[in-house]
Nucleic acid binder design. Structure first.
Length: 497
RNA sequence: GGCGCCAUAGCCAAGUGGUAAGGCAAGGGUCUGCAAAACCCUCAUUCCCCGGUUCGAAUCCGGGUGGCGCCUCCA
């Protein structure tokens, strides 16, 4: 039974549409990457994680996906940041590209197939600007080049804006007066900016200068995915003006539709407000990863649909990690049960494939992350049931079923980017992090456990319970197993207000 | 001022015309010397409010209320 056809919410159409690849079996996707002038924050991380899972899922469905995510490394904000640090702008941009790669490694994001940079695509950018001038939709003005919005009749189709409404919105543009004189219409936007003294610049037919903000994506997407491609992704805030302008530039240059389907991820909120660099209410990804496992953060991001706003708190993050430890405990137990055993051929219990089927139904419907997670929960519940309270006696049947379920977990996990670690290693690493966070004296823990073992051997259960209580006061929970006592840190969650 | 999104249990969150997924927390149980883990059971006659359409609405329409976003750099 093949999984259902995939439907994707297209911002342009304002509804879910069937995924219809231009070339059967293949998909091209362009995701707007970071402008590298500082560290990325959790909101950025959420968007990139969403598209990471989307690309992984499309590949798992057999599509040959070409995934392009750019770096905007030439930009006004980079110049400004470099002036503050005293670095060369390109050096600063390169530094933050390296920092981005480090941060993102902690989230286990897959590498895009192409990660183009503006600074190495100036010829392509200049070529498309020349084409726009030749097509009569762009004009030079004192060394700058502007796109004449009124010449592109589809303008506003993505963001549902009308030109007359935009006009009033632009009146308070910073530095307005000089800019006003250079532009024919107030909503025209820059394709090329002549450099001021001290600013980095590249030669062009119009001036030594640099590209405007939006043109790089038009140039790079057409280079790597063609003039028309399947999917274009980014954060909600890029719809206007960035994506709107991209459409105008690309379509005015090529005469073709830029992209069939536009996908936009929603924001991550911090205390009810959008997290953004300009508001200053940001939590850096790396600061979060210092306190929290990367997979736990991924799991948290997947707890709601990618088009839904997501609020976060320390408690929610800690809960995600606790949930992840349930999954890893289960995997550890399962692997111990199944490793190196041959259960032969034969029937299995129930219908092990039903969870994966449910997962596909959810993911096929515009990548319903939380629905997919529900399927995952069902799968783990079944695994635990078979391990601890098997509904059938035949151990070979149980074993074969566990093997089948474990394989399904592996497939779903690689789509979600979860459970990529060795269960025992992950659990130990989490314990160590909590030990440090709570300042637990592990030597004392070991000593108390030894004392308790002695008391239990002597059947002095009152003393054993007293020692358990003492450990509990240290936030340590003991688990007696046939192989001896192990322990874990209680992830005490102080009540929130 | 213009445009748009959202509102589901104590909390997080699916569901978008057919009678409320899943998770956390809580309570009870099985197991255990006691625990922990796991499993089982319980936990929204109801989906912000008021009207309307319909045999039937959390889901569609109209009007409120509350929260958020875009219109200016932002994932």
């Amino acid at each position: 039974m093949s999984p259902p056809a995939i439907r994707v919410f297209n911002t342009l159409a304002q509804q879910k549409v069937p995924l219809a690849p231009i070339v059967p079996g293949k998909l091209g996707i362009y995701v707007c990457g970071p402008t590298v002038y500082s560290f990325i924050h959790l909101g950025n991380a959420r968007t990139f994680t969403s598209f990471d899972v989307i690309v992984r899922y499309l590949r798992s469905r057999g599509f040959e996906v070409r995934y392009v995510r750019n770096f905007t490394d030439v930009d006004d904000k980079i110049i400004k940041a470099a002036q503050e640090t005293g670095e060369a702008p390109q050096a600063l941009a390169d530094r933050f590209i390296a920092e981005f790669q480090k941060d993102v490694a902690g989230l286990h994001l897959i590498e895009p197939d192409v990660s183009p940079k503006v600074s190495t695509h100036l010829p392509e950018i200049i070529a498309i600007i020349q084409k726009l001038i030749a097509n009569g939709v762009a004009y030079e003005s004192n060394g700058d080049v502007y796109f004449q919005v009124s010449k592109f009749q589809g303008y506003g189709k993505l963001s549902r804006k009308k030109l007359d409404e935009l006009e009033s919105g632009t009146r308070e543009l910073a530095g307005g007066d000089t800019l006003k004189e250079l532009k024919r219409e107030p909503y025209d936007f820059a394709l090329w900016k002549a450099a001021k003294p001290g600013e980095p610049s590249w030669p062009s037919p119009w001036s030594a200068g640099r590209p405007g903000w939006h043109i790089e994506c038009s140039a790079m997407s057409s280079k790597y995915l063609g003039e028309t491609f399947d999917l274009h992704g980014g954060g909600l805030d890029l719809i206007f003006p960035h994506h709107e302008n991209e459409i105008a530039q690309s379509e005015a240059a090529s005469g073709k539709t830029l992209c069939h389907c536009w996908m936009h991820g929603n924001f991550l909120d911090l205390e009810g407000a959008k997290m953004s660099k300009s508001l200053g209410n940001v939590v850096r990804l790396r600061d979060a990863l210092a306190k929290l496992d990367g997979e736990a953060l991924r799991y948290f991001f997947l707890s709601t649909h990618y088009r839904q706003q997501l609020s976060f708190s320390d408690k929610m993050l800690a809960d995600a990690e606790t949930r992840l430890s349930y999954f890893y405990e289960t995997l550890k137990k399962t692997d111990e049960r199944v490793a190196g055993k041959d259960f032969g051929q034969g029937p299995v219990h129930g219908e092990p494939e039903r969870f994966e089927r449910e997962f596909h139904e959810q993911m096929s419907d515009d990548f319903n992350f939380s629905g997919a997670l529900a399927a995952l929960s069902g799968l783990f519940n079944e695994v635990n049931l078979l391990c601890d309270k098997p509904p059938v006696k035949d151990k070979a049947v149980v074993g074969r079923t566990l093997v089948a379920l474990r394989a399904a977990v592996g497939r779903l996990a690689s789509v979600l980017g979860l459970f990529q670690d060795e269960p025992a290693a992950w659990l130990l690493r989490r314990r160590e992090r909590l030990v440090v966070a709570r300042g637990i004296d592990t030597a004392k823990v070991d000593a108390l456990i030894a004392q308790r073992q002695a008391a239990r051997a002597a059947k002095d259960f009152a003393e054993a319970d007293r020692l358990r209580g003492e450990l509990k006061a240290m936030n340590v929970e003991l688990m007696d197993t046939p192989a001896g006592a192990t322990w874990k840190v209680i992830p005490t969650l102080q009540a929130e207000d």
